[in-house]
Amino acid sequence: MLLWINGPFGGGKTQTAHEIQHRLPGSVICDPEHAGFGLRRMLPPALRGDFQDLVSWRQGVVEVLDLALTRHDGVVIVPMTVTDSGYFAETVGRLRELGHDVRHFTLLAQRETVLARLRERGLGHLLRFAAGKGAAPRGESWAVQRLDHCLERLSAPEFAEHLWTDHVTVPRTADRIAVLAGLTLRPHQGGALRTRLRQARVSLRHIRFD
């Protein structure tokens, strides 16, 4: 089974994916963003745009996930924002055509909620303070610029199942996805501080400035 967790940038996809992986033995996270940024870095700066526009990215994602789903004996978790219906068909749709059990979920929240999460995401605000800079990292600024577009597109029926997360914790969101997918997660353990530290480590590993 593949769990594709969609949503706006800063909407909680990565944290939710890692929460599920932490509590679901045998599961793995396959993040298509790694391939996307690798392809993007191959191009001269003037030619770098949205890596999802590259046919090589879309085809490569399907090829790699098909391999993982075929050879790995466990759930594959994919945290990835896809808002273009055509690209969605070429990735999620294509994997389903290949016979894979793909469960797609879109995490949604009010604009103000996502903006607050972006401000708190990772240690970006601390790094900016230490550097004496007020500007956000490029990735964070880009996420804000794309927020309205993401929320509008992802609210469409084709991107269901929709899960609203404004007042729901990451562990609770993971629980909801597991129930809908027919999976059993290990109980969430650890207090609020331990959970927050684990989430901070995840955020730190995913800070990007390019």
Rank of each mutant, 00 (worst) to 15 (best):
D210G: 15
E63N: 11
D66F: 07
P45W: 04
A178E: 10
L107P: 05
P44M: 06
F209T: 15
V92D: 06
V28F: 12
L107A: 01
L69G: 15
L47T: 04
L43E: 15
T83V: 10
L115M: 14
T169D: 07
E140M: 10
A135M: 08
D148W: 07
P25Y: 04
P8D: 02
T165P: 10
L67G: 11
T106K: 05
F159L: 12
L180T: 06
V92W: 04
L24N: 05
D53E: 14
G26F: 08
R201E: 13
T14M: 12
A17L: 03
L65K: 08
T184K: 04
G10E: 05
L123A: 11
Q145F: 11
A178F: 08
D175Y: 06
D148I: 08
L193F: 13
R138C: 09
M1S: 09
R119Q: 13
P137N: 09
L107Y: 10
R71W: 10
R41G: 00
F105P: 02
V202F: 04
A143D: 00
E63G: 05
E97H: 10
R48D: 13
K133V: 11
A130L: 15
A130V: 15
L108V: 07
L115A: 07
G190W: 09
H149P: 00
L123N: 12
L69E: 08
R94S: 06
F88P: 00
P44A: 12
G60W: 12
E112T: 08
A192G: 01
S141Q: 15
H104E: 09
L197V: 15
L69D: 09
S27P: 10
P157W: 03
R117S: 07
E90Q: 14
H104R: 01
R205D: 11
E63K: 11
R128T: 08
M42Q: 05
G10S: 05
R103V: 09
V102W: 01
G134C: 04
R23E: 03
H34Y: 08
G182S: 01
M42D: 04
A116N: 12
R117N: 08
V202T: 08
A181L: 02
R176W: 10
V28G: 02
P171F: 14
W4R: 01
R138G: 08
I207V: 08
R138W: 11
H206W: 08
R121E: 15
A68T: 02
A46Y: 02
F105Q: 05
D101T: 00
G86I: 04
R40L: 11
R119H: 11
T81V: 09
E97K: 14
D101N: 00
L126I: 11
F159T: 06
D73M: 05
L180Y: 03
H72S: 09
H162S: 05
P32E: 03
R198H: 14
E19F: 00
T106E: 02
L127S: 01
F129L: 14
R146T: 06
Q199E: 14
L67N: 13
V76A: 13
S203D: 15
A200D: 11
G12K: 05
A46K: 03
V62I: 14
R138E: 15
L147G: 02
N6S: 06
W164R: 13
A35Q: 09
S141H: 06
N6I: 06
P44F: 07
T169H: 03
G10Y: 03
L65S: 10
E152P: 00
R41C: 01
G99S: 02
V168K: 06
G36I: 03
D31S: 03
